[in-house]
Amino acid sequence: MGLDAIVLILVATVAASVPLILAALGELVVEKSGVLNLGVEGMMAVGAIVAFAVAVETQQLSLAALAGALAGALMSLIFAFITLTLMANQVATGLALTLFGTGLSAFLGLKYTSVALDGAKAMTIPILSDIPVLGKLLFSYNGFVYFAVLVFLAISWFLYRSRAGLVLRAIGESPSSAHALGASVIKVRYLAVLFGGAMAGLAGAYLSTAYTPLWAEGMIAGRGWIALALVVFATWRPARVLIGALLFGGVTIAQFHVQGIGIEIPAQFLSMLPYLATILVLVVISRDAGLIRLNAPASLGQPFHKQGH
C-alpha cells in the first residue's frame, strides 16, 4: 500500500469521525454537568432532516447547519424541561427522546425522501491545499470538519481553563455543594443540555448535507449510540473523545478497505469493535476507582432537588 492510499484512508477516516466528534463532545459537556441524555440519536435525526429541508429550500448550507443545530437544541429543551424542571428519570426520558426524534424526523422528512442536493464542498485554501500529502491530509475538507476542530479547542479550554467550566464541573461532581456556593445548578444544566442538543443537531446536519447529501429515514444508523459510547470510552476527556472518534471512524473505513483488498476478516467483526472497545474501557476503569473518580462526573444521572423548599 502506497503513501497515497494511506492518505486517502486517513482523509476518509476524518470525514467519518466528524459526526462522532461533534455529537460526543456535546454529550461530554452535558454529562460533565451531571446529566445523562441518551437522546443523542433522536436529536441527530431531527437535526439532519431540518438541516436538509432548509438546505433544499434555501440552498444556503451555513443556514442549514444553523437550523440543524437549533432543531437539536429544541429537542434537548424538551428533555431538559422533563428531567430538570419536572425531575423525571433521565435514562427513561433520554430513551423516549431517541424514539420520538426518530419518528418525528421520519414524519418531517416525508416530502424530502430522495430529493437531490448539492452537498457541502471541500474548502480549498490557496497554497496550503496544494502542499503534497499534507495539503490533502489537512486542508481538503468541508467547513464542518474545521468547525469540529474549533469546537474541540473551545471545549477543552472552557472545561479546564475557564471559571464557568469549573462551575459546570463542580455541579457535575456535587450539585448540592455547588448550590451552597451560589451556583445556579438548574440553569447551568439547562445550558449544558441545550449545547449538547445543538451539537447533536449539527452532527445530524453534517450527515444529511455534507457527508451523504440526502435525507433518508434511519440515516443516522446508530451513530448517536456510538457517540454515547465514545464519551465513556474517552473517560470524559475531550482529547480522548477526539482520538476515540478517529479510532471508531477508522475502524468503519478500514472494514471496507480490508474487504476491497481481499483480506478475510468478517465485516461484522469489525463493526463490533467500537462497542467491544467501550466495554473493555468500562471494565478497565471500573477496576481502578481512582480513574473514575478523576474524570467521571459523580452526580451523573441523578436529579437535583434544591434544599429548603
Binding site: 484512508i9 457527508y211 451523504t212 434511519g218 444508523a221 471496507f256
Partner: peptide
C-alpha cells in the same frame, strides 16, 4: 439501506 456506509464503501473502492 444505510447511506453513510454505502458512501464509505464506495469511497473505499
Amino acid at each position: 439501506f444505510d447511506p453513510g456506509r454505502e458512501r464509505e464503501a464506495a469511497v473505499a473502492l
